[in-house]
Amino acid sequence: MTAAEAAIRTTGLTKEFGRQKAVDGLDLEVPRGAIFGFLGPNGSGKTTTIRMILGLASATRGDIALLGEPMPSALRSVLPRVGALVEGPAFYPFLSGAANLRRLDAADPPSSSRTRSARVTAALDRVGLRHAAGKKVTAYSLGMKQRLGIANALLAPRDLLVLDEPTNGLDPQGTREVRTLIRSLAEEGTTVFVSSHLLTEIEQLCTHVAVMSAGRLVAQGTLDELREVGRSEVRVETPDTAEAVEVLGRLGLVPVAGASGVTAELDGKLLPERVTAALVEAGVRVRGIAVEHQTLEERFVALTGEGFDVAG
């Protein structure tokens, strides 16, 4: 993939605070059109990375290309095409929701004041806040502020959205709405970069995933790729457990007999169909066979956890 194709590309991106490396040699590649999930435990360097990508903080080393242009030198021409929600929404509490959006829109040099009111109304509509447009933000709930933060990212047509924890503070209904909104934006051609520690959310939403741990990127790829590198398990339902254990043992697996069948961890090379064939050949009565991939959560813990948690 060339740099022009990537919505975000970092090479060797490093941020040091004194001796501590908050971000260490990050090579991130977000393809255009993707819904990209950026995962990592708290303190793993996600927000610092986002701050550097958006030009809020400078990198100690490394390069950033945002929509094909170098950051932070091309900041003025790139950022109007990027909508962002960074580390929670922030607004002037003494201004109304609409007035806050007008203020932040006025700060965007290419935005036209003639279309401002219309765009503010459209953005508020899109996040379901139109009824609260005239209310002061100090009277907003956390979820409403979060919606207003997303509305701010949608004030103009964007090529890229960077959303840091977009569903933070939202009720289940709001979470669903935000998910639907992100999908519809992606369908319109916007690349969406979502950071989160809510794995189920990423699993339901994203096409691509990157996982950070202690400042380093530990995995990156499509959701399926990431799942497949993880462990998977074959579960055979059979009354002939003893025979099944023997067959699986011959295939080089380490089977565990249970009450209604046998389970064994699959290594990457052995295909499930070979297991089925071997079982049938040996006359084992197979009532059911299933291959279960590790959930993203298990994979996540394996990638970011310590010692014995790391996948073998």
Binding site: G55, L56, V86
Partner: peptide, 9 residues
């Protein structure tokens, strides 16, 4: 941060 990301130089 939102003013700077808008971007306000």
């Amino acid at each position: 941060r939102y003013l700077l990301v808008a971007p306000t130089g």
